[in-house]
Design a protein around this nucleic acid. Structure first.
Lengths: 302, 302
DNA sequence: GAGGCTGCATCAGCAGTACTGATGCAGCCT
DNA sequence: AGGCTGCATCAGTACTGCTGATGCAGCCTC
């Protein structure tokens, strides 16, 4: 299970073709074919069906392992590479679209702060590789559960803010008059899947314990106003943190009565950052106080 | 950063010697030397000091990445290998020493159940590799925080039981008369570090936010009665879940008033297990109900 | 249904890798 | 100072992993 072989395997599955994967990886088609053959003989089972090229059951299972493994490997490389470079000056931050209210409540310390808005995974990758000093990520979870963040290396997570979730409905929706709704009652509704902006639908499925929440529309942007406009235009429902939802116009915002899930913002950073970043970490962390801090599994004291 | 190179690097750091690592790995000393040289030139920094052989700062950093990476790689291999084999019959379980009360409250389902008592890390490794169908692990954490478990692959974690922690003191200890103590007041006391039996001291340090809790005695066994005898004999203090502590004789058990940390048992298993294991998962999980379930970061729906 | 075409499998050949075993050399102990 | 332990280095070799060419199976076209 050489990482090179895994990387080719992932590329082949992603592209659905040996030859296309070969050209994106800079190999010949022959090499890719040999890589896959090597993996299959190593693991003792076919991983891909050919014509069409698609993962078998074993291949799908391997994919679940391969992608996080390769991510971790890259994160480790980047982390080590950063050790050799001189630390740069300004503070640099990343945040997911719905997490910035927690960040921008107070001025950013240091000179020339830089802020990037990224998706959850990209934000995590950026903080792991050291491209940014810290990141704020948001997500939905049960009140006492952590956000399930990909484990890319030794990170520290601090709970920053938490608020309730609300369903955003078009004003004329049948349920718009209700003071609150149960999420399960909406599982068969038309939903907008906005994985980078709001709460990803798979997360709702886990929380509500159903197979519903099928996406009718997919929105790939990171702009909440556009998402609100989509709801207003009747393209589907979505779920947003309460305060954000209430800033949208022309839509109805309804509380979720069950299950009890909340929207939470967590700060993620590597070891103790230096300088201005450290100041910010301490200020944000102070809002929580007490034992809200969780070091990541990888390096946590047991 | 070939895994082979990482593996030899880890071996060299563990053994503190190139030649010893070589023989345990089945290489020549020459090969090990070349492996380390290759890693160092790849990462552009020395990783080890020679004479004595010890990791440099960069090497220590690499170790933090290497070991979890290799663990995950092995876990992935084992998971895939298991797919090829016919599922075996009996149910097989692992639990950490302090987690069995939650497990043995009711009879185990299936014929020929097998139970193994392991350390936290070994139990996780066993469930990831499929050697056991599910594992119960225990640990200390803030009430709303999860146990920080190493991320070895796609696992599901369910909170099973939670109770308060108690300090176990010799009967004649000055603080033995108090109804409760603050953990911070005991940070300078003599402690017994019993990482496999009780609550590891580093965990207490994180919870209490101090640098104290230095071990005077280390106990490597998994037997709680022996740990109790150590306390009784005055070798130091320890922390145990309340109900377990109260079963010890000749010691004083005192509640912890601050910080608020609890002892929690979590059930960990891979995908949905089949047969008797499934029955057990559902029964244990039912005790919790609601959204106590957390799929692991690696494969969690976002 | 025959032919062409697309795309993965296979093969031969070559270049570079990854070992081994021998030797060199630096630090430490006596 | 001399010996010894243990990592570095070097030469040699087996083998791995790539390329380019060819083979062959399935699908589309007509």
């Amino acid at each position: 299970m050489d990482p090179h072989l895994l990387r080719t395997f992932v590329a082949v599955v992603d592209q659905g073709s040996f030859s296309v994967a070969a050209s994106t990886l800079g190999y010949t088609q022959s090499a890719v074919s040999q890589h896959i053959a090597a993996l299959e003989s190593d693991l003792g089972a076919p991983l891909l069906t050919r014509r069409p090229v698609a993962p078998t059951a074993a291949g799908a299972r391997l994919m679940e392992h391969a992608r996080p493994l390769l991510l971790r490997l890259d994160a480790a490389r980047a982390d080590l590479a950063r050790l050799n470079q001189a630390p740069q000056q300004g503070i640099s931050l990343a945040c997911t679209p719905l997490s910035h209210p927690a960040l921008l409540a107070a001025p950013l310390p240091g000179d020339r702060p830089s802020l990037r808005v990224l998706g959850r995974d990209e934000a995590l990758r950026a903080v792991t590789s050291g491209e940014v000093d810290l990141a704020l990520v948001d997500g939905a979870a049960a009140p006492s559960d952590p956000l399930a963040l990909a484990d890319l290396g030794p990170l520290t997570t601090v709970r920053v803010a938490e608020e309730s979730l609300a369903v955003v409905l078009p004003a004329q929706h049948p349920l718009a008059g209700r003071p609150s709704v149960r999420l399960a009652d909406l599982s068969e509704a038309h939903w907008i899947d906005a994985p980078d902006t709001g709460v990803p639908l798979p997360r709702l499925r886990v929380a509500a314990g159903t197979d519903g929440f099928r996406a009718r529309t997919t929105y790939e942007g990171t702009d909440v106003l556009t998402l609100g406009a989509l709801v207003r235009a009747g393209h589907g429902l979505t779920v947003l943190p309460d305060s954000t939802a209430r800033r949208l116009h022309g839509v109805t915002v309804t509380a979720v009565s069950a299950p009890h899930i909340v929207h939470r913002v967590e700060m993620v950073h590597g070891r103790l950052p230096r300088g201005a970043a450290r100041e910010l970490v301490e200020r944000i962390g102070a809002g929580e106080g007490g034992p809200g801090q969780v070091t990541s599994p990888a390096s946590a004291p047991r």
